[in-house]
Simulated assay, not measured.
Amino acid sequence: MNSPSSAANPTPVITARQIVKEFPYQGDAVHALRGVDLAVSRGEHVAVVGPSGCGKSTLLNVLAGIEAPTRGTVELLGESVYALDEGRRSALRLRKVGFIFQRFHLLSVLTAAENVELPMAEAGIGRRERRDRARELLEFVGLGHRIRHRPPHLSGGEQQRVAIARALANRPEVIFADEPTGELDRRTGDEIIALFERLNADGTTLVIVTHDPHVAGRARRRVEMADGLVVSGGEPS
């Protein structure tokens, strides 16, 4: 849904330097990230893998501007993310970044189309344009016939497609996805990954956290984590 791109442009869209993230726990600290360096180029499709508890999801949240690191810097699309105040950081996330959660995070009282419209409404886009864009995106993800259905009446795979459509609403340059197939069966998961591959072919940068080697194998680059550190694949090849 962005401009087509035949190959990854080497321009960095994400640069993380010496990212440390600590969580207080019973008077001590849990060290989720221990000095992570990571670079992602424009147009890449990156899978972040590693055992449970190694810091994958924490890293994704830090890269996306959702959760501030204890120490370190993140540059995202030319902005030093945590040098921005919360208002400017929220605007960056809203207009330039899409985030897809494992458990969908859809509002059950809204229709599929209304869920997709939400980020556009936050961005101040007019009602007619929002409706047209929501319909276009739901058709793109194969749910043109489910526009008026609410999440409780959709399957898990359909809910994840709505979540993808919502993440695309404001035409993001980068999409972050946290275990996007973790709640899905293999066939449905393959369909979701095929959607991601279509987005990447259109030029969207993808960073996906996954525990599934099949999903990781579909990415163009694999970043491996262990014990809060990137142990391989931290730089574009």
Score class of each variant (00 low, 15 high):
1 M>Q: 13
1 M>V: 12
1 M>E: 15
2 N>M: 15
6 S>V: 10
9 N>W: 14
9 N>V: 14
11 T>W: 08
14 I>E: 02
17 R>M: 11
17 R>G: 12
18 Q>A: 15
18 Q>F: 14
19 I>L: 12
20 V>K: 09
20 V>P: 09
20 V>A: 10
24 P>Q: 10
30 V>E: 09
33 L>A: 14
35 G>S: 10
38 L>C: 13
39 A>N: 12
39 A>P: 13
39 A>E: 11
39 A>Q: 13
46 V>S: 04
53 G>L: 13
53 G>V: 15
56 K>F: 12
58 T>G: 12
60 L>P: 09
62 V>C: 10
63 L>A: 10
76 L>T: 08
82 Y>H: 14
87 G>P: 10
91 A>Y: 10
93 R>C: 14
100 I>A: 01
102 Q>L: 07
102 Q>E: 07
108 S>K: 08
113 A>K: 01
117 E>L: 02
118 L>T: 06
121 A>T: 13
122 E>W: 13
126 G>H: 09
127 R>V: 13
129 E>Y: 05
131 R>Y: 11
132 D>P: 03
133 R>C: 07
133 R>T: 05
136 E>H: 09
137 L>M: 04
137 L>Y: 07
138 L>Y: 06
142 G>E: 05
146 R>D: 14
147 I>P: 01
154 L>P: 01
156 G>Y: 02
156 G>P: 03
157 G>Y: 02
158 E>L: 06
162 V>L: 05
162 V>T: 04
163 A>S: 07
166 R>I: 02
167 A>R: 00
173 E>A: 08
174 V>H: 04
174 V>N: 09
177 A>M: 02
179 E>H: 00
181 T>C: 01
182 G>Y: 00
184 L>R: 00
186 R>N: 11
188 T>L: 04
188 T>A: 01
194 A>M: 12
196 F>S: 02
202 D>G: 13
204 T>P: 05
205 T>D: 12
206 L>F: 03
215 V>G: 02
216 A>F: 02
216 A>C: 08
218 R>K: 06
222 R>L: 07
222 R>K: 13
223 V>L: 09
225 M>H: 04
226 A>I: 08
228 G>A: 11
230 V>C: 06
233 G>H: 08
236 P>D: 07
